[in-house]
């Protein structure tokens, strides 16, 4: 372990955990409402971000117009997916539903590639590319002051992501719709019994998930560019969801940050092989979580045990 670099990498990892948490939130929203794990979340994110890019760069709209339009598109996309693809699957076995979201992912991937092509493109900068923040910490390691250097766009992406997660959490806690969504996630039949229209709740969840996905995609694209491989980034959010607990919104933040942190910590190692392991760290964490505590840190115990 390279102790000199560890604080820097740990903090960068934590910051990278913000967008991971946002992606994980999209998965949790859908899972809470309908017990569907959405393997197509990455492709929804890709399509939404490509639409943002198209509006802002190809159509020349200013960002304040392009982003809301793209978010509206993502919400409609989420609604359409729920209506066309998932509603016919109500009551079908789990395998069929998993395959449906996987198929949906493939179809959306193909559609994005067909409409926008596979080229790597620059995404307009959302946040001013000012000087990186320098934070001089009081700690001393190996007789040298530890100085953290934080890129501005990473910091602001992190802030936006955490604010986004907090907004959704507030929506769940304090609005009537949120109450209805919580009731639905408790028990579908009971929710219907008290007069909630659960199909509409599913629709809202998917629309929200679409909006959250596109927001995450925009944040990632501003810091690292945009091409069709953006959809793969979500794969790092799967372990975050399971670590935090599948139906827990606070768990999303903790899970996302822990995944980011562990990736950062591994990158600070002195051994080449361990450094290379940063890309699979989320999955090693995932295996450990599955074997020790499948319901995650904050999730309710609903894992079907054998």
């Amino acid at each position: 372990m390279n102790w000199q670099l560890l604080p820097q990498f740990a903090v960068s990892g934590l910051l990278a955990g913000g967008p991971i948490a946002l992606m994980a939130l999209g998965l949790v929203l859908i899972f809470k409402a309908s017990y569907i794990f959405n393997f197509a979340q990455g492709q929804m994110m890709l399509l939404g971000t490509l639409v943002t890019w198209w509006l802002a760069v190809e159509r020349g709209l200013p960002m304040w117009a392009a982003i809301p339009l793209a978010l509206a598109f993502s919400a409609l996309l989420g609604l359409a997916i729920e209506r066309v693809a998932l509603r016919p699957m109500t009551g079908q076995p789990l395998l069929a539903i998993i395959l449906m979201t996987l198929a949906l992912g493939q179809a959306l991937q193909g559609l994005s590639l067909l409409l926008f092509g596979g080229a790597q493109r620059n995404f307009p900068q959302l946040f001013a590319a000012g000087n990186p923040y320098r934070i001089v910490t009081p700690w001393v390691i190996n007789e040298r002051q530890v100085i953290l250097i934080l890129k501005q766009n990473l910091v602001w992406s992190f802030v936006v992501a955490i604010v986004g997660v907090a907004l959704i959490a507030l929506l769940f806690q304090f609005t009537r719709t949120g109450l209805a969504m919580r009731a639905t996630s408790e028990d579908h039949e009971l929710a219907q019994g008290i007069g909630l229209r659960i199909n509409r709740i599913f629709g809202i969840s998917w629309a929200l998930a679409g909006v959250v996905a596109t927001t995450g995609g925009i944040l990632l694209a501003t810091s690292s560019g945009l091409d069709v491989s953006l959809s793969i980034v979500v794969l790092a959010a799967f372990p975050a969801v399971l670590l935090g607990g599948l139906d827990s919104i606070p768990g999303v933040i903790v899970g996302g940050l822990l995944i980011g942190l562990s990736q950062g910590a591994v990158s600070a190692s002195k051994v080449q092989l361990v450094r290379n392991a940063a890309e699979i760290v989320p999955y090693i964490v995932l295996m450990i979580v599955l074997l020790i505590r499948p319901e995650g840190l904050f999730g309710r115990k609903r894992v079907e045990r054998i």
């Binding site: 693809a85 016919p88 699957m89 079908q92 069929a96 395959l99 449906m100 996987l102 198929a103 949906l104 992912g105 493939q106 179809a107 959306l108 991937q109 193909g110 559609l111 994005s112 590639l113 067909l114 409409l115 926008f116 092509g117 596979g118």
Partner: peptide
């Protein structure tokens, strides 16, 4: 789609597969 002609085949393969699988599942 002349703008994306270079990747059309690459795009159509997952698109066709995804749509056919969805239709079968439904």
């Amino acid at each position: 789609f002349p703008g994306t002609a270079a990747s059309t085949v690459q795009a159509l393969r997952p698109l066709f597969f995804g749509v056919v699988l969805m239709l079968f599942l439904i």
